[in-house]
Amino acid sequence: MLFLMIFSQPEKNSSFYIFLVITYIAGYTIELIGVHTGMIFGEYSYGSTLGLKLMEIPLMIGVNWILVIYSAGMLVKSIGIKNTVLAAAVGSTFVTLLDFVIEPVAIRFDYWSWKTYDIPPQNYVAWYLFSFALLYLFMHLPFKKHNPAAPVLFITQFLFFLILLIMDN
């Protein structure tokens, strides 16, 4: 999916690549801090499903953050929200709702697990605030914000995890 999003991004410029690098590093770093302190999202650890790990964090997690933020940002832009703060707020609401449906499925399929079975509310607050910051960056960086494949990716991810969630109950 990452390669599809990069390939389908029109008029790639340095700001687009800066977005990718910052989002990957920020996503990986916040997970690294989160896992090792328990202070951001709550106490959790990664299972084996997401593959190769460095310092207990799957290398794929930065890619996941890119895909979620990029596709949510493009979804918000596609519905015509022009105000940067409002766009970041709506986008981070979408991202947090996505996490809400991902969490139970992720636990079931060993993406990650929580110290207690209950998902701490701070997880959703952290997802909202962190995604707001990344979406604000996304909105501000001067690269073309039109990629018809990206909103489809976001909606597909949401529906995929929602279906798995419903089927598991």
Score class of each variant (00 low, 15 high):
M1I: 02
M1L: 03
L2I: 09
L2T: 10
F3W: 15
F3V: 12
L4M: 05
M5G: 03
M5A: 02
F7I: 03
Q9C: 03
P10G: 12
P10W: 12
N13D: 07
S14V: 09
S14K: 13
S15G: 04
S15Y: 12
Y17C: 14
V21Q: 14
T23E: 02
T23S: 07
Y24Q: 14
I25H: 11
I25G: 12
A26C: 06
A26F: 01
G27H: 10
G27F: 02
T29N: 12
I30N: 10
E31S: 08
E31D: 14
G34K: 09
G34L: 04
G34F: 09
V35N: 00
V35F: 04
H36I: 11
G38N: 13
I40D: 06
G42P: 01
G42E: 05
E43R: 07
Y44D: 11
Y44M: 09
Y44K: 12
S45G: 14
Y46I: 08
Y46F: 15
S48T: 04
L50Y: 01
G51R: 05
L52Q: 06
L52A: 03
M55Y: 11
M55S: 11
E56Y: 00
I57A: 01
P58K: 03
L59R: 03
I61V: 12
V63Y: 05
I66K: 08
V68F: 09
V68P: 10
S71C: 03
A72P: 08
G73F: 02
G73P: 04
G73N: 06
V76R: 06
K77P: 10
I79C: 06
I81S: 14
K82R: 12
A88E: 11
V90C: 14
S92V: 10
T93A: 10
V95H: 05
V95K: 07
V95F: 09
T96S: 14
T96C: 05
L97I: 14
L97G: 15
D99S: 09
F100H: 12
V101E: 12
P104L: 01
P104H: 03
V105G: 06
V105S: 10
I107N: 10
F109Y: 15
D110R: 11
D110L: 07
Y111A: 01
Y111N: 00
K115E: 15
K115L: 06
T116F: 12
Y117S: 15
Y117G: 15
P121V: 04
N123Q: 14
Y124E: 13
V125H: 12
Y128V: 00
L129A: 13
L129R: 00
F130R: 04
F130H: 07
F130T: 13
S131Y: 11
F132E: 07
A133E: 09
L135Y: 08
L135R: 11
L137Y: 11
H140S: 03
H140I: 05
L141I: 02
P142W: 00
F143E: 04
F143V: 05
K145P: 03
K145W: 02
P148C: 00
P148Q: 01
P148M: 02
P151D: 10
V152P: 05
L153M: 08
L153N: 01
F154E: 13
I155D: 02
F158D: 02
L159N: 09
L159H: 01
L159W: 08
F160S: 10
F161K: 00
L162Y: 09
L162H: 06
L162W: 08
I163L: 01
I163A: 09
L164Y: 05
M167I: 00
D168V: 02
N169V: 00
N169P: 03
N169Y: 03
